[in-house]
Design a protein around this nucleic acid. Sequence first.
DNA 1: TACATTTTGATTGTGCACAACTTAATTGGT
DNA 2: ACCAATTAAGTTGTGCACAATCAAAATGTA
Lengths: 149, 149
Amino acid sequence: MKLLLDNQVCFDVHAASRALDGLYRALLRDLGLTYPQYLAMMVLWEREPVTVKELGAALRLDSGTLSPLLKRLEAAGLVRRERSAADERSVLVRLTPDGAALSSRAEQVPDRLLAATGLDVEELAAFRGTLRRLTAAVDEAALAVRRAE
Amino acid sequence: MKLLLDNQVCFDVHAASRALDGLYRALLRDLGLTYPQYLAMMVLWEREPVTVKELGAALRLDSGTLSPLLKRLEAAGLVRRERSAADERSVLVRLTPDGAALSSRAEQVPDRLLAATGLDVEELAAFRGTLRRLTAAVDEAALAVRRAE
DNA sequence: TACATTTTGATTGTGCACAACTTAATTGGT
DNA sequence: ACCAATTAAGTTGTGCACAATCAAAATGTA
């Protein structure tokens, strides 16, 4: 039956995503972070302050996802939010001292995760290349479908 | 900074998964199905009846996800659930006539999706191979982490 | 300047995913 | 035959993701 073929590619991506999420869940457990929260913190550990819009652009997430996520990070004392003085529509997100300090405890996560994938450098590069092209092509196709309706 | 490198692989998988989900959302819109619901229906279009456990094994989902999902499919009139006579713990899931009929309307989805990925056959094969090995390795690593704690 | 448009973020509602727990049915060991 | 352990589903609670909608601020143009 035809319905199996396509499915696998997409299902495999879906399954891989959930598997990675599960590993992150285990690795980030004692940091008190989820994977999406960890992603947001990584952006902040690099540059700060950042507006919600910038964060959304970096992570490809909208405010419907980020607003509650940032609220939880704020409740955990890792982050502080304030309206920009220059543009009152924007909200600037900053690290608290606790949030900044957490980065040292997160340092080992990347290595452990990379090791867990079991992929070597060149395989990784090819894989990521395919992933990026896939994502771009699929995003484009989704736009085309929406336009057609 | 070290925190970027690993991130990309995982983030790329995450992003690809969400992109595919978005395309499915568009393609399945007029069928009234979400992507996970579509996956469940595909299993049922192949073999029937199926227990919740079997469905969970096929989709790698637990009852906490499947129970409400199946309840929605039942509410939509696509599926019927009944306790197994042989083993009262099990619930058998069957298609209704409407549910069975829906498969014909879903036939075009795979082709459209495969085309949207923009991948050729051999690239697809290599990609899926990497995905499978990645998932297996990561699942294994997650188990190891849990055992160590 | 006045007003329509755009931008930014928040909110609401729906659905997926998983951990932890509960209940009922079955199985296995004694 | 009895009781402990296991198994199958369901339930609850938390969090992510996104569509749709809204309010407030900024921008552009008549």
